[in-house]
Amino acid sequence: MNSRHALLALLAGGLALAALPWLLSDFLLALALSCVMYAGLAVSWSMFCGPTNYLSLATAAFFGLGTYVTAWGAGALPYGLSVLAGGLVAAGFAALIGAAVLHLRGAYFAVITFGMGELVRHGITYYEKAFEGTVGRIIAEAPESTTVYWMVLLVSMGAVAAAVLVRDHRLGLALRGIGSDEERAQTLGVNARRSKIAAFALSAFFAGALGAAMAVRWTYIDPLTVFNPFIGFQTVLIAMVGGAQTILGPIASAVVFGLLTEFLRLQFPYLFLVILGFLLILLVLYLPGGIASLFERWRWRRGNV
């Protein structure tokens, strides 16, 4: 499937999803919103981490920065501009931090990106205590829930479109080369540092924009809620279970996760985390290539019959 076909499929899918507010109850729309948000986060994470084999735990930091941009700009900035600004702030932050730490690999990179999130959270808490006298802020005027849904859908679609374009162009090839053998890629002319920073910042843009778009869902924003490391872990988990080398895998995985979590939570309120954990172990053991490898298997079988 080339870029054009993928983008057309995305557009069709996006238009269909845009109609959901007229079809679903408030409860189901909230569920759809969560699925679409995690799909966007997981795809943006995989855009950089999939081909390069980096493990970034910075998603929570980018997401949280985005929400804070909306919180700071509330009243002054229109919703759409807040989302854009949230993305840009996160991308700028990622470029800055990326320039400093992207030479690290493996566990070091994972730990330091996790630390970044904590640093930002404590930084903002300190700033608020020292200069504002209060921690957290209230968002008084929130757009309607359908508007939020459309905005999150738009940003997530943007993330998927960006992932398709990166995959099919030179940046994607460079990232795959870096993931396979960084030094070899460099000896063939790849400016590894620049490629990594660019892709890391692009991936952060969408995480930040999603944070900024979701901020208005909470009326009260404080660092502990929005820099929740759980958001970062959940994103990584979804992307890996889906298959971070692909684009469709993380999307499918986000939907499966969203629905499964909700179903288990309603049916087995006391056991749901236990069951979810058990399912995860099974998935990792028996489907190491992620959900995407199911498509591959199916395609392979169809091709051979």
């Binding site: 000896t187 790849v190 400016n191 590894a192």
Partner: peptide
């Protein structure tokens, strides 16, 4: 200068133990 600068100037090399991109 980093390796990509050498590559841009037209220096290409092979490695003693082949370092191909295995998945590609």
């Amino acid at each position: 200068k980093p390796p990509h600068a050498y590559a841009a100037h037209g220096v290409a090399r092979t490695f003693q133990t082949p370092r191909v991109f295995k998945e590609m």
